[in-house]
Write a protein that binds this DNA or RNA. Structure first.
Lengths: 226, 226
DNA sequence: CAGTACATCACCCATGCGGGCCATCGTAGG
DNA sequence: CCTACGATGGCCCGCATGGGTGATGTACTG
């Protein structure tokens, strides 16, 4: 089963180079080419390729919009190719847009030919592949932004809390009053107050509002997990 | 300038194989080996390698904890190697922990030898590299997770607030007291109370703690934007 | 067995906070 | 011109909240 590929790029030389490179592979067929996004979408719909090599910067319609249209087809169109984005420049901001659109990869045009070929095979197989510099940024963003389970500052202090105190803190962070917490945990309200007092003291917080802030910032609770 | 590498894996054959493979490269030196996380951290601190090849599953201390310790060194230790995680099994849940810990890459042990070698060079250069299946998952998570900055329910109600009220709500969500808010906005504390009263009423909230919850849940404030 | 950590509850006290009610002032809109 | 609305501010009141202190029982650990 050969991999059907189309190449969408406004530069004739780039198209020719990639086409020659890929066509030389026994398992890859170049079944179409296009010079801009509009044409790329049209060719994609008509030739239903497995993989679309898509340049980011193009006249008429850029690669991002074209990728979006190919990856979110209108009702009636069932074919969804894999999209491998290409760019001449290093990591511009389009990367994230492309990934959100559903692109399977992002390569720089100066990558070794062998990388391009293997990238086509990888995305055709349903996996994904990014240029190393892109991967690095993605991981960095992921690590900083994904602050849910583990975080440096607050979660360390969280370890100073007893299980019961942590439990109470979580209920505070849900917006419950002392009475409601007492009811929920089957406790006297005074006991709840004692626990809260300890929590505030241990975490150096002034009031329950700050406790809520801390709970969110530390990842004890997360927006949406209500 | 050669790349200094240490290999941390509990299986002797794996260590031997990788060591032979890497040592054959002119630009790579294998300067140490370790059989578990504890030893890995120790060897890492002593030999200050550029790259640490770290197995995920190991006795004593697993690769994740070891990676965390190497990547978040205690005060006084300035050396921070790049960590390239290795696993035999396909994408387990440890991937995300490893990335959060700051790992520069994640490869499967059945990857082609050429990939391993190039991966070492990539991470040594400061870039990152993931196994295609890992990349795929990361992109998928990134795409789905990225589109929730603002959510339906709460943010709609937010429109009912006046600019001033919204401003006050945000300060509540930072943990400020009425007095502090008054000072920050150059207002009488009583005015702050009036604004807060309206906010609570409009949003059907009981107290400022619930207001903080609402601010986070609606996306008005976000964990980490301090 | 002694010591420690945790959970539980009580009493007292000061006050920050939220509710109710109302007044003034500016500006935008009919 | 006059109305509506937002922003600003004041007063009073009641209560939930937070601080301080102490006591009891249990469970684990040295």
């Amino acid at each position: 089963m050969t991999i059907r590929v189309i190449i969408v790029d406004d530069q004739a030389m780039v198209r020719a180079g990639f086409a020659a490179l890929l066509a030389a592979q026994a398992d890859i067929d170049v079944v179409g080419e296009a010079v801009n996004g509009v044409e790329g979408v049209e060719v994609g719909r008509r030739t239903h390729p497995d993989v679309v090599l898509m340049d980011v910067r193009m006249p008429e319609m850029d690669g991002l919009e074209a990728a979006r249209q190919l990856l979110n087809p209108p009702p009636g169109v069932t074919h969804r190719p894999k999209v491998l984005m290409l760019t001449t420049f290093d990591v511009d901001d389009y990367v994230y847009e492309a990934l959100r659109a559903g692109a399977s990869g992002f390569l720089l045009k100066d990558a070794p030919p062998a990388d391009l070929i293997s990238a086509v095979r990888v995305v055709a197989a349903g996996d994904a592949l990014l240029a190393p510099s892109v991967t690095r940024r993605l991981i960095a963003d992921f690590a900083t932004q994904q602050r849910k389970p583990r975080r440096g500052d607050p979660s360390l202090q969280l370890n100073g809390l007893t299980p019961r105190e942590t439990e109470v803190l979580e209920l505070i962070a849900r917006g419950l009053s002392n009475g409601e917490i007492a009811e929920k945990l089957v406790l006297a309200e005074q006991t709840v107050k004692t626990h809260i007092g300890r929590v505030l003291h241990k975490l150096d917080l002034r009031d329950r509002a700050q406790a809520v802030v801390f709970a969110y910032e530390s990842g004890l609770v997360t927006p949406g997990d209500g």
